[in-house]
Design a protein around this nucleic acid. Structure first.
Lengths: 289, 289
DNA sequence: CATCATTTGTGCGTATGTATC
DNA sequence: AGATACATACGCACAAATGAT
């Protein structure tokens, strides 16, 4: 059959490499159409499955997208906005989803399914991942708080709005007041109360923020409104005792094609706390962690 | 033909969803084998191309990998080491690839193809992306310095060592001394001289570091030694005039499954400058930017 | 409004090559 | 050497979305 036999120049790989170079070069401009499958079949004299394999590769690399019945297109890159990480021991600012702050920083609708509380909050048990983060055993009771934010339709390419998901996990042993009905309601509506309780009962704490990324899973693509194959930025902030034992972990997930992460020193001379919400928004800052 | 016809329950999608859930659940443990293609063909009563499509999906999501002649396996997650971002105006530390520092922070072999200079350095012209970063027009002369670092075989899963790629772009107009043969050699061997020149000639400068991520392209996977589909962390540090105009841009690319990004305040009480190289390494820190 | 050409999505069967055990 | 498993590639058929006629 005389197939190329060398994996390095498999025919689909040649096509993918050609197209990738052309896209990164700008020969196919962002938003523009790539050649149709039949065109590529003719051009490279291969079968349609081979052409499709090449295009699927570009899609999985986030370089292209496909619309059924229309064709394949170069994926445009939206402008990235900024998530600002603070170093300070300021639980007021550090509290994620602290309503006044987050709203002020450019979030149009801080609603979650039209319900009142900012966070869903429920007592569950730690799965393997959460157990590692909190330094407890799997199955240990934890408080799981979750919040989903979206930022109104900006100059979005496909009409999709940017979203952020915030998950918070707390060792339930460290916040027995959670079960008090009155406080429970407060905690769900006012994250600052939540953090104040923790700091009041567990004294001076350390904050530690680590950032990484990975490819989004399909369910995350759905909840974060990511149309294409993309990476998610994962910002994990740990509130810990001075001895290092974790008290609470907050994990922010953000689509990597819409967000970048900066640090407070980067804002000219004035510390960010002295900037007005409008000034922060003008600097492209959506969230302060 | 009676094909399911509804894209939502495409047969390959059902299989992929099943396998993904099983992997995230731990029913297929990390490093363990997934069912072989023929097994899945029998289990779901579909053709082999359909099974392969499902597996390819998991691979492109970074959840699995395939070894020819052996089978498909759940991708284990290696431990992440840390890249530390400093906020200070310290060009000595800030200089990437400053030989003594980088080596001290745990890099066994800071060699690049067994050549002497740490950085390749050449004068080229700005492509579109670099032009945007430096605030010049496409085609403007720029100095491009490049360096590739690898960290010896740690507890790597597949024997691959972690690697970092560092690219630096400078507006060539701002460093005419680059063309002086004597200095040229110095600049390539001693990045600190390079940055000292820039700061000496352009006075007080601002440093700005922004981090984001995206899915790695195939060529990047090769140079960064990433066996699987993965995200790359992109750390972009800009050296700018106080008025904001860029002088030099350093871009670090790191495999997101092996690195996370932290900040200097997180190191206990002592600033990282006071820690010995060994203490830094013990804290899992590979690089200070 | 219906029809048609174009384009992509899903799926089958088959053949051959190559790596691993 | 043989069995197993994955990689590449072809041809074919039909479904479904799109846009123009």
């Amino acid at each position: 059959m005389e197939i190329s036999t060398d994996d390095k120049d498999a025919r689909w790989r040649v096509i993918a490499t050609d197209l990738r170079a052309a896209i990164l070069d700008g020969r196919y401009p962002p938003g523009g159409a790539l050649p149709s499958e039949p065109e590529l079949v003719r051009k490279y004299d291969v079968s349609r499955p081979t052409v499709r394999k090449a295009i699927e590769t570009l899609v999985s690399e986030g370089l292209a997208y496909v619309m059924r019945g229309r064709g394949s297109f170069v994926r445009p890159m939206p402008e990235r906005r900024t998530i600002l990480i603070t170093d300070r021991d300021r639980p007021d600012l550090a509290a994620p989803g602290n309503h006044p702050d987050v709203q002020a920083f450019g979030w149009d609708l801080a609603q979650r399914d039209h319900e009142a509380p900012l966070f869903t909050g429920e007592k569950t048990t730690a799965n393997r991942n959460v157990a590692v983060l909190l330094g407890v055993r799997s199955g240990h009771p934890v408080i799981h708080r979750r919040s989903l934010w979206h930022r109104g339709h900006t100059a979005a390419v496909h009409g999709a709005s940017a979203r952020l998901e915030i998950n918070s996990y707390t060792n339930a042993d460290l916040l027995p007041a959670w079960d008090d009905p009155k406080r429970h309601a407060q905690y769900r509506k006012r994250p600052d109360f939540f953090y104040q309780s923790l700091t009041r009962e567990h004294g001076p704490v350390r904050w530690m923020t680590l950032t990484t990324a990975r490819i989004a899973y399909e369910d995350e693509r759905t909840t974060l409104g990511m149309d294409y194959a993309e990476a998610v930025l994962i910002i994990r902030r740990t509130m810990a005792h001075p001895n290092g034992h974790p008290i609470e972990v907050t994990e922010v997930k953000a689509p990597a094609n819409r967000y970048e992460i900066g640090h407070h020193r980067e804002l000219a001379d004035a510390p960010e706390a002295d900037l007005t919400p409008q000034e922060l928004a003008d600097n492209g800052i959506d969230l302060v962690i």
